[in-house]
Simulated assay, not measured.
Amino acid sequence: MTPNLLIINGNPKPDSLCHALAREYARSAEASGARVTLLHIGELAFEPDLRHGYDQMPPLEADLLALQQRLTAAQHLVIVSPVWWGSLPARLKGLLDRTLLPGFAFRYQAGKAHPEQLLAGKTARLLLTMDSPPWYYRWWLGDPIGRTLGKPVLGLCGIRLSHQQHLGPVHTASEKRRTGWLARACAAARDDVRRLARQRR
């Protein structure tokens, strides 16, 4: 069976290193035989702000309904994102708030502390760009995005965070280094597709 991948570029800018990394990952995954959906968050039409929390939920926009369908079908999720103030861009955080809903991503169970994981069996990769050195982000700051998304968000829904890549510092990177990062994204895609294909045998 053909591996099915969903890639989300979480940088809302129309042109960025994240955009290029997501595109190269998608190209390499397709060349390796996978079925790929690539979404750029800046092109999705939705309201990211939950003004009343989950008490008064607005109807899901067409792009969010389509995203839920693609996430259901995907075996592997790839989130490409810049690190802004140690965390995710607000629009990407809003996308997760609006999409990973009770009844879709998880379901509370009476008498049990942990909800039923409705997206169980999927894996995820984080590909993060930053202006800090990766060692500083991981060891000094404690990898805030990995800690936030790994168990509290993706893990709660049953998606296992299998890989993380930290690329930086971006603001001082030479063109040669940026090209090397694109090559790493391509290699990661090939590795992911091979792993998913083995799991399907």
Rank of each mutant, 00 (worst) to 15 (best):
175 E>S: 12
135 W>A: 09
83 V>M: 09
58 P>C: 09
66 A>I: 06
53 G>A: 11
4 N>A: 12
10 G>H: 02
155 G>F: 00
164 Q>I: 07
29 A>S: 08
12 P>V: 10
37 T>G: 08
44 L>N: 03
7 I>Y: 01
74 A>W: 01
28 S>W: 01
18 C>L: 04
154 L>H: 07
170 V>K: 01
21 L>N: 07
51 R>D: 15
144 P>G: 09
2 T>M: 13
21 L>E: 06
186 C>V: 07
10 G>C: 09
94 G>M: 11
87 S>H: 09
98 R>G: 12
77 L>F: 03
45 A>P: 12
83 V>S: 03
173 A>I: 06
64 L>C: 06
197 A>T: 13
27 R>A: 15
135 W>S: 15
177 R>W: 03
178 R>N: 13
136 Y>K: 05
5 L>Y: 02
47 E>R: 10
109 Q>R: 08
148 T>W: 12
180 G>S: 04
71 L>V: 01
187 A>L: 04
105 A>K: 09
52 H>V: 09
127 L>S: 15
86 G>S: 10
198 R>K: 11
193 V>E: 02
129 T>N: 02
109 Q>D: 10
137 Y>S: 06
130 M>N: 07
14 P>L: 03
64 L>E: 00
61 E>S: 10
182 L>P: 07
85 W>R: 01
185 A>K: 12
